[in-house]
């Protein structure tokens, strides 16, 4: 029983890792642009398809394909920001419509390029790291956890120690007041999209061999990510990380010990409970939404 508990903790940590990567990007983009990016799950999907194209099809090294995923999805994010989202600033409804349009376009492009069937990606590594007697973690999952910790740590340092990191935090809290300090809204938006998309792309790339890769795979992660940012408090990066951990643990434990459908219900109930007790989310201060 102890082994099962420990194993579930390990599994939940893995789930929390990639969920946090996706949710933090979503929060960053919402904070700076005031736009809820429904296409964020598709950034995740694009990252996974970079692995399909570069690693599975071209047989290049797995880590190279992850790097391609990071750079490519980041560029897609920046292009989407410039062409679609920037003109929709101060227009949340327009931003919503645009993001749903982008979602459909990216899904269709993935379908055109790769077909609707699930891609089989040969696992880059079959190694299982034994953490304790009867508790193990596949190396592939361990990499996701370590990458998430490293990337979120780097993001934290960037936001707290650099000039533009500071500017981004200020923009996320009050874009107009930030502009009055000389912080370009356009540049802040571009950086937010570049980072947000890159994080989602990396999450998709790293998990591609572990999940089912198909054009509509973004749905599964985006619903969880929305629950996470609502629980964590829209606009709070720390909140998103902590809520991702809370959600992943609740979901994984209920899935393991009860079943998957109940786990989804528990996730939604968690969101409902937070909305009733603290409508701004656990770490949210702002009522802007």
């Amino acid at each position: 029983m102890t082994e099962l508990l420990l194993q579930t903790v390990v599994n939940a940590t893995y789930a929390a890792s990639y969920l946090a990567l996706v949710a933090v990007g979503l929060v960053l983009i919402f904070g700076v642009m005031g736009i809820i990016n429904f296409a964020h799950g598709e950034f995740y999907m694009l990252g996974a398809y970079c692995v399909v194209a570069v690693y599975a099809d071209l047989a290049l090294p797995f880590l190279l394909s992850v790097a391609v995923g990071l750079v490519f999805v980041s560029l897609v994010g920046m292009a989407a920001e410039r062409a679609l989202f920037r003109p929709m600033r101060e227009n949340p409804l327009g931003g919503l419509v645009v993001s749903i349009g982008l979602l459909l376009i990216l899904q269709s492009l993935a379908t055109l390029g790769f077909g609707v069937r699930m891609e089989h990606i040969p696992p880059p590594s079959q190694t299982v790291v034994q953490l304790a007697e009867g508790v193990g973690i596949p190396l592939q999952r361990l990499v996701v956890i370590l990458a998430a910790v490293a990337l979120l740590g780097a993001l934290w340092l960037f936001l707290r120690r650099t000039r533009w990191g500071w500017a981004l935090r200020a923009s996320a809290q009050d874009p107009e007041a930030a502009a009055l300090q000389g912080i370009s809204m356009a540049v802040a938006s571009r950086i937010a999209f570049a980072i947000g998309a890159a994080l989602a792309g990396v999450a998709g790339a790293l998990t591609a061999p572990l999940v089912r890769t198909y054009p509509y795979m973004g749905h599964s992660v985006i619903v969880a990510a929305f629950i996470v940012i609502i629980v964590g408090g829209i606009g709070s990066l720390e909140g998103a990380v902590l809520a991702a951990i809370a959600y992943a643990f609740a979901h994984t434990f209920v899935t393991t010990f009860v079943d998957g459908v109940i786990a989804d219900i528990v996730g939604l109930l968690l969101m409902l409970a937070v909305l009733i007790v603290k409508p701004t989310g656990l770490f949210g201060s702002r009522d802007r939404a």
């Binding site: 000039r163 500071w166 500017a167 935090r169 200020a170 809290q173 009050d174 107009e176 007041a177 930030a178 009055l180 300090q181 000389g182 912080i183 201060s285 702002r286």
Partner: peptide, 21 residues
């Protein structure tokens, strides 16, 4: 600006340094 619009989740010093962006 009207209503002060300080950055609530930044410290006092971070707010001031933002002014020197």
């Amino acid at each position: 600006p009207e209503g002060r619009r300080v950055f609530a989740d930044l410290t006092v010093e971070e707010n001031l340094r933002t002014g020197a962006f």
